[in-house]
Amino acid sequence: MPNRRFGFYLALPAILVLLVLLAIPALLTLFQSLFVVPDDGIGIGQFTDVDNYLFIFKNEIFWATCLRSIVFAAIFIIGSTLIGLAGALLLNEKFVGRLFLRGLLVLPWACPWLIVGIIWKWFLDGNIGLLNGVLMRLNLISSNQDFLSNPDTALVMTALAATWRQSCLVALLLLAGLQTMPRDIWDAASVDGAGIIQRFRHITLPWLRPALTVVTVLNVIYGLMQFDVIFAMTQGGPGSATTLLSYLIYRQFFIFTNFGVGSALAVALAVIALIGGLIAVKTLYRKIEV
């Protein structure tokens, strides 16, 4: 059997699963976004052309929420990538307790997003939260801060909570990438007089580029689709300070039971995520030239 055909057969189960679980619902969502879907969910309803899209694009709430979602995602993507990269570099070095710390990396990732939200809600609590306690002891604040009830800090704090979990996955993926890097390249560069920053810039970073591309695309998706952490920590509040597009979609589907508009919002979010993912790939993906 030719290699290509054999490869196709191996991939076929995964392709079928993806078709059923992703492609069909995605197409259905796209389809529904052009209709007024009946509340009872029976039938597809009346074709409305692009009215659902016009409705959301003409609504200032949509644009404000878009901007908020992008800010949230930017904090999430940059934060989790940088923290994850730093963690991976650290855990790639030899020191006592390295294995234990590597094991700990899995713990946040093993927590469901909702639980992460609850943990961080207590951590940031305005009266008894650990963060306030630490900041007070370090004399960085003189009185307790209500991070989640303050519209100026709530979005950043919820993004940091999500970042905490995601940075562990990023660290794991990048650590795996680092461990495949031949040590002799690094050693040869040292012999040639390259400093630590030069070695990182010209050897480590290019080596990690494919892994970074995957990680960043994942971060774009997780950052823009984030719902659970927000739901657990602020329910989109105070006011609309943490209301993201995913929250609007939830409201349209399950509160207003407006599947047409909900689907249009979902398509809009998917397009934003797609653009974000493409930018990440375009910016980061290059062939390894080490």
């Binding site: 609590d125 305005g126 209500d146 009830s149 602020t234």
Partner: peptide
Amino acid sequence: TPKSVLTDDPGKHTTSIANGD
């Protein structure tokens, strides 16, 4: 009210009043 009342859960309020806060 505490400023955090906009995001506080009933569990926290229960603790608060039960402890005299």
